[in-house]
Design a protein around this nucleic acid. Structure first.
Length: 218
DNA sequence: AAAACGGGGGC
DNA sequence: GCCCCAGTTTT
């Protein structure tokens, strides 16, 4: 996959596992339950804002049983910096109850089952598989979806189509990497508003400039 | 298909 | 002050 090669060249560090911007993630990011909960907290939020919230939450309520019986108001206060405190607090307490009471503290490595949890959609479920279980899974977020459409890899509003397309052109052994590489690409070069095309290593295989011209923009 | 949830950081 | 952010759920 040519794009993957270029992204590897662009971001050569083997580090950046999990969502940590600067190296090895905390130990709780290795455990599927903690990955899932922290991923819910990270939704529609800059990662830096979420980390403090996750650390505080898991320091106070480490295990599913702890969070399952936690007072909602206290949880809201702990996770406030992550945004959507009311919504997310209610969801993660409900998640903890299911995980503890019905699943006996073990998450299934099954996207469809994980998606039955509140505020766990396809992206969050796939992140849990990838970062929690270390299984091949492609997590399509706004960056991955935007970039895939912009460069002409897909032409769709449906993130599932992007997941399918990426799955077909990416070696299975790299499924865990393509997501973090594209997100990083989307944060540094292929940004939503003003992509830095002149510095972009894949401009040769990208439809973006041509598309803009055809639509009469600059 | 569009709105709503929401605090924090960048400019 | 205004805009955006590793989404999901509800209308």
């Amino acid at each position: 996959m040519k794009i993957l090669d270029e992204l590897d060249r662009l971001y050569p560090i083997g580090a950046y596992p999990g969502r940590s911007p600067d190296g090895i993630p905390p130990e709780w990011e290795r455990d599927p339950y903690h990955v899932l909960v922290s991923t819910v907290l990270s939704q529609r939020t800059k990662d830096a804002n979420t980390r403090a919230a996750s650390d505080r939450l898991f320091d106070r309520f480490p295990e599913p049983s702890d969070l399952a019986s936690a007072p909602l108001e206290e949880v809201k206060e702990l996770i406030r910096p992550a945004g959507f405190p009311a919504q997310k607090a209610k969801a993660i307490v409900a998640i903890a109850k299911v995980v503890h009471n019905e699943w006996h503290d073990r998450l299934p490595a099954d996207v469809d089952v994980l998606m039955t949890l509140p505020m766990v959609g396809r992206k969050t479920a796939n992140c849990t598989l990838s970062y929690g279980f270390g299984l091949p899974a492609i997590c399509v977020d706004t960056h991955v979806h935007r970039i895939s459409n912009r460069i002409g890899l897909v032409d769709t509003r449906d993130p599932d189509d992007t997941e399918t397309a990426l799955g077909m052109i990416t070696p299975r052994s790299r499924w865990c990497d393509i997501n973090r590489l594209m997100v990083r690409f989307g944060q540094t070069l292929c940004q939503p508003r003003r992509p830095r095309c002149s510095e972009c290593p894949i401009k040769g295989m990208c439809d973006h400039i041509a598309t803009e011209m055809m639509q009469g923009r600059q």
